[in-house]
Design a protein around this nucleic acid. Structure first.
Lengths: 126, 126
DNA sequence: CTGTATCCGCCGCGATACTG
DNA sequence: CAGTATCGCGGCGGATACAG
């Protein structure tokens, strides 16, 4: 079972690619993590924004919309004044937490190795 | 332990961010996976390119360089004619395989759910 | 409070051509 | 076979202003 095997094609619409696209938007995994680890799976817009230093309203909304489209979260609107919107992890989203957390855990465990070897991505020589 | 906890800051240079940057380059995880699953941890340039349909020489080289810089792989040059270059997973790289594989596995397990819910990233409503 | 609409710089990445 | 250099497009994502 070497180079000839066809059990994992790299087509555009294959599962692995789909997953990677979830990371294409920079904030997706951080929103997921924050929603889970800091707020037990549900939180309102403002709360999320305060929990994610540096994110803009635009990217927050955009990221949440895409996550909703992907079925990772749901969006509930309370028709009151002022409006209150709550986002909640779906079962699919909650199952996605484990892989993401493992990724983060790996980062923590190997932070020193990365510190020593990575100069910095995107650093520009002049 | 709510919004006040400080056990996971989102600073630019924190571990989680570092990990996400490894995915900033589209092909990184696929090269990692291919190197591990198809070639037992080591392979030459040409072999990798054939195993990754759609990748260009430019992106292959660029991705490999960044992975080398991050300490995920090593680069061995055989000074012969024509030149033969082999890339090999480092211990750090091999440890990174598990989280990535789990991510991919999640994609496979939930491919149907994604099929049903994801219209397509970037699709624009008018 | 939540969300939308522009303007715009930066950069990932593909296509192409050339070197050793 | 392995790698570099250039050009160009698309899109992420930040800043800002406006709306319900």
């Amino acid at each position: 079972m070497d180079a000839g095997s066809r059990d994992d094609e790299w087509r555009e619409d294959c599962a692995p690619r789909r997953v990677l696209e979830l990371f294409a938007t920079k904030w997706t995994s951080m929103v997921l993590h924050t929603l889970h680890a800091r707020h037990g799976g549900a939180a309102r817009t403002g709360v999320l924004q305060r929990s994610l230093p540096g994110i803009s309203k635009k990217m927050l909304t955009q990221t949440l919309r895409e996550m909703e489209t992907s079925g990772l979260i749901t969006r509930h609107v309370e028709t009151v004044v002022p409006p209150a919107v709550e986002y909640r992890l779906t079962p699919l989203g909650e199952r996605f937490v484990a892989p993401v957390e493992l990724l983060y855990a790996w980062g923590r465990d190997n932070a020193d190795a990365l510190d020593a070897l990575v100069p910095r991505r995107g650093s520009r020589r002049r």
